[in-house]
Each structure stands twice: as C-alpha cells, then as structure tokens.
Design a protein around this nucleic acid. Structure first.
Length: 474
DNA sequence: TCCAAGTCAATATG
DNA sequence: CATATTGACTTGGA
C-alpha cells in the first residue's frame, strides 16, 4: 500500500539537493519501500523490472552521499539478528544474486567511487533500512518461499527431476536425461594455486601485460588467453576494492574509542614517515599523488619495461618450450622465497620458510604440466619437468600458501580527502585520511598495496603520455 | 580495441 | 544449509 510515498521522498530529495548533514541518524533519507505499487509478490522473483527501476535510478541520481560502509554494516546486523539470509535479501530487495550480495556487504566501495549503477544497491539498502516493515516483509517472503518449496517436493513424489526445467531445453535438446549433459556444458575453469601464484607474480611485474605477454603467460600456464585476460581484469579490480575497504575501515575505526592515535592529521599534513600508508587509489591520477617509499626492494615494478620485450617467464620452470627464445636472463625478479607451507590457517605467519629453497634460485612451484595440446581432459600427468628444480618438491600441499612476497613499504600518500571535492563530503565514514595501517602482519595487504601501486604507476605513465617511464621520484 | 565496474553463477568453505 | 570466492560475461567510456 502506500504507493505514493516513494514519489514523495523522491520529490523531497529533488527539492533539496543538498541535504547532507545529518548527524547521527539519517533520518530523512528516502523512505518508503521500493517499488511504487505493483510489487507482484506472487511468483515473480525479481522485483526489478521496469517500474521500480526507474524510480531507483532517479533516486540514485539525486541521492546524497551515503555511507556505504555504515549501510552494509546495518544491513548485516539486521539480517543476522532476524535470521534472514542474504540470498533472500539480495533477490528480494536488491535484485542481485547471493554471491553479489555477499561481496557487496563484505566489501562495499565508498560512495564516491561508485558509478551510478553501483550506487543502486546501496540506495535500495538504505530504502530498506528506513522501511519500518522491512524485516517483516522479508520474513513473509521467507515463509512463502518455504511453503512453496514444501509444496513442491511434497507433490512431486516420484519425480526424479523436480520441475525446474526452466533452463533446459533449448540447445542441446535431446532430451531428456539431464544426466549426460555436463562436460559439454562448460567446465568452469579453476586455476590451480600454482597458477594463481604465477599470475600474481606476473602481475607484480606488469599489472597491464601486453597482449604478447598475455599470450606467453597463457602458453606457459597452459591456459586460455581469455582466461589470463580475465584474470588480470578481475585481479586488478579486486585489489582495488581491497584497498577501498581498507581505507574505509581505517578511517572509521580511528575514533572508535580505544585508539587514541596521537597522530592528528591536520589538514593535509605530509606524513613524511615512510612507514605507513594508505592512500587511496584514486583512479584519477593526474593530480599529484605522492607516493613515497616504495623501494624496489623486491620487485621492481613494472615501469621498467625495458624496451625489449623480454619475456619473463613467470615461474622458473622453464619448461616449456614455449617458443620463446629470448633469453630471459634475469628476468625473474626477486626472490620471494615463499613456498607453500602448510596451511593451517595461521595468520601470523612467521617468515621463515623452512623449506629449502636455495637462496639463489627462487624455486617456486611449477606448474603442472603442459600437455602438448591434446585437449583431452586435464589430468596431471606429472612429470617430466625436465629441468625442474630439484628442490622443487613437486607435489605441493594444498592450499596456497600464503602469499607473501614483496614487502613494499607502502605507498603512503595521504591523498587528503580534502582536495578531492572539497565540497560535500560529509564524511560519514571516515575521511579518506591516511590513517595508519600499522599491522605489519598482513603480508597480503602489503602485497595488495604494492600491486596497486604498480597499477597507479601504470596509469600515471599512461597519462603522462608516452615518455619513457621516467623515474618518478617517490 | 582496451579497460573498469557490476554482476552472475559455479564452487568453495563454514 | 548459508556465506565467501572467483572466472567469465555484460555494459559503458574513451
């Protein structure tokens, strides 16, 4: 009921474009439930379809800056408190699948980094949070779903394949037997830990590999080119996100209470210390971005592409044959000696890989095998490995070891939130300040940061137009 | 064309 | 069962 509410809120927002400033609770943001009427609750799973979408988009357009982190936090609380799953919430309220919701709730990007489209779910969440009956509605949905489910399996007594032929048919037809249809479907590539390692290593050196490099990687790892491309795209964007959340969390917890943090940042202070960092990723780039530190330490970054095009074999296992002939000489960048150490989930990993790994060579696992190319299923056949390193311990354990590698000092750069837009920023959540990420323990984080740095560098370079990779002074 | 941002959907994990 | 991860696809911009 209440069909006009959304309109009302919308109008309100429109009328006063600059709301902002809400202190503790955001009271007036939007209210009302999403779809203006119609709400077919019966069988249509996806609520979004035409009608509501429009309103939402308009709302997004006029929506004030929202605290995405705060919103997701509250949503998670409400959901868990009431035993509501994110699947139901996602499909019913956001029109997204479970996986997407999980991701969104766990790693919300800051509002200003979101595209119009990306803001939609957050506006919906805010709307939902403001809806007094939000929980109740979801509970109802849950009940209905369950009922339907029960009914279905109840009535379908002997059906071997419960209904749900929705996807069926079409192509392969033939009927029937859903049994023999797999394999041809599409296997869903799963990269082995070693492969991921190799890709990550390659990423450190070149976040934006050239087509040629990609080809080589694909060949060496025995993966499809598209897989390698996709991997890089995904990795880059995911790394970026990690940084966002880090930024947000750092900011929000700063004044949580216990932490005193002497560091008072006065507007744009330049932290000279090289220690921490944080920094934002900022896609813009052009402006200044001071990154300090970054000693090459271990991986020198990408910019040094040297004009030749050398092929870097990511893993030492040379193997292969791949036709590369160029001597890769040192190529391998640093040593990173990690290797797999058991897993046991420890987070505090002490460094000190017990395993041998001769200091000079970075042994790292090598890939599984490169079959000629017959295409049959992939089974690891082992072996061979001609030059394989002896130390190589071929069978790796299982999980991927932690990834630790490079220990970049950090990018630092205070970026100063102020410079950004300097206007609205109500900063509900943190400022994008440079806080301090002191935990040294997280290698992963560091790695991500480092990776990100490379990313930034790459972009700057690009932006700066040709010009060789000048040496940016960090 | 490449890239980034959003998602989906299959798998992994818990 | 629910949630988390992740390769691939889609969309939209230069």
């Amino acid at each position: 009921m209440s069909s006009s509410e959304s309109v009302k809120s919308l109008t309100e927002l429109v009328q006063q474009p600059c709301p902002a400033i809400e202190t503790s609770k955001d009271g007036k943001q939007h209210e009302s439930s999403e779809p203006p009427a119609s709400e077919s609750q019966s069988t249509t799973p996806l609520p979004l379809s035409g009608h509501s979408a429009l309103s939402i988009q308009e709302l997004v357009a006029v929506s004030p800056e929202l605290d995405t982190y705060g919103i997701t936090k509250r949503v998670k609380e409400v959901l868990t408190d009431n035993n509501l799953g994110q699947r139901l919430f996602g499909e019913t309220i956001l029109g997204l699948t479970q996986g997407s919701v999980s991701d969104l709730l766990a790693r919300p990007k800051p509002w200003h980094k979101l595209s119009l489209k990306g803001r939609e779910p957050f506006v919906r969440m805010q709307l939902w949070l403001n809806d007094p009956n939000n929980v109740e509605k979801l509970m109802d949905m849950k009940r209905m779903e369950k009922k339907a489910y029960m009914k279905r399996r109840h009535s379908s007594v002997s059906d071997s394949q419960p209904c749900e032929p929705s996807s069926a048919g079409i192509d392969y037809s033939q009927g029937a037997s859903p049994q023999p249809q797999h394999q041809l479907k599409k296997p869903r590539v799963v990269l082995a830990p070693e492969e991921k390692e190799a890709l990550k290593r390659a990423y450190q050196q070149k976040p934006y590999p050239s087509p040629k490099t990609i080809e080589e990687l694909a060949t060496q790892l025995n993966l499809k080119t598209s897989t390698v491309i996709n991997w890089f795209h995904n990795y880059r964007s995911r790394i970026r996100r990690e940084l966002f959340i880090e930024e947000i969390q750092a900011g929000s917890q700063s004044q949580a209470g216990s932490s005193d943090s002497p560091s008072a940042r006065s507007s744009r202070a330049v932290h000279s210390s090289e220690g921490d960092s944080c920094d934002g990723v900022d896609t813009e780039g052009p402006p200044e971005e001071k990154q300090s530190g970054l000693e090459a330490d271990e991986y020198s970054n990408a910019t040094t592409k040297s004009q030749g095009g050398q092929a870097e074999s990511v893993f030492e296992a040379g193997e292969a044959a791949s036709q590369d002939a160029r001597s890769s000489e040192k190529t391998e960048s640093f040593h990173l000696g990690m290797e797999n150490l058991e897993d046991t989930d420890d987070e505090g990993r002490l460094k000190a890989p017990r395993q041998s790994s001769p200091p000079g060579s970075q042994s790292s696992g090598e890939i599984l095998e490169t079959m000629p190319n017959s295409a049959t299923k992939e089974d690891a056949s082992t072996s061979a490995a001609s030059t394989s390193v002896l130390t190589g311990e071929s069978s790796f354990k299982s999980k991927e070891s932690s990834e630790k590698m490079l220990s970049v000092p950090s990018t630092s750069s205070t970026l100063a939130g102020g410079s950004q837009k300097a206007n609205s920023i109500q900063s509900l959540f943190s400022f994008s300040e440079a806080a301090s990420s002191k935990n040294t323990r997280d290698n992963t984080l560091r790695k991500k940061k480092a990776a990100n740095l490379n990313n930034i560098i790459h972009r700057l370079e690009k932006a700066a137009s040709r010009e060789e990779p000048v040496e940016w002074e960090f």
